[in-house]
Design a protein around this nucleic acid. Sequence first.
DNA 1: ATCTATTCCTGGCTGC
DNA 2: TGCAGCCAGGAATAGA
Length: 263
Amino acid sequence: MPELPEVETIVRTLAPHVVGRRIVQARVVSPLVAAEQPQALAALLAGRLIRALRRRGKFIVFDLDDGVLCVHLRMTGKLLLDAAPGKFTRAVLELDSATLLFDDVRQFGRMSWSKALPPNVSRLGPEPFDLTPRAFAERLHARRGRLKPLLLNQAFIAGLGNIYVDEALFRAGVHPLAQASRLSRARAGRLHASIVEVLVEAIAAGGSSISDYVDAQGRAGGFQRFHRVYGREGEPCQQCASKVRRIVVAQRGTHLCPRCQRA
DNA sequence: ATCTATTCCTGGCTGC
DNA sequence: TGCAGCCAGGAATAGA
């Protein structure tokens, strides 16, 4: 599941090979991947120069000489450099220097061209690294909901998904169902620090590979080895040896230590 | 604003 | 071995 660290890793591994390059030809293999423009996308991309590549939240943004190409990988999407096309290849971008594949088993991922950044990208909340602890605390205190759904809300903070929310909450010692507005300033600060810390560590490890994720060169990440609660139901907590529990919050599997994380 | 439920999608898993 | 049924979940959407 590509979240911020995985998308960041993809962008970093991809950028040196695509920035300054031209899209010679584009091919949409599976219309679902192109969402609103299954017919038009290929023509819109053909001939475009890739001026820059960046990440915004979980989106990969190609800045073109005309417009932008926004890619969201959702659950199982991959951008692969010079890989062999397979049964899950949904789109192909032939660059003047390389071939870029959009592979996606489950076809949740999307790519779309637009003249300017589309609303679902421009309306994203702040990047975690851009928020000061103080600003983060103020944003939390302005909300009524519980912590986990709020942290998953991309308009509140961009880039976090199920894995890193669970990991950050554990590190901060905060329960996923805690009321956002009632978090003390100290605990809010600790949560912000935990979010930044876990993201930085995950990026350094090349992201987490649970089942599908690989970077643009096809390499798996290593951070899954350092998950403390995610996917560790029934294992002893690394801090207190209580059993890690799995509950459901906002229809999401949620992993926590009931002893270390108090509401 | 906040909540829940539903939809999309399919490989992989469980259980018989 | 085969097969049905369920699960994973990010984001959009509908409805309360």
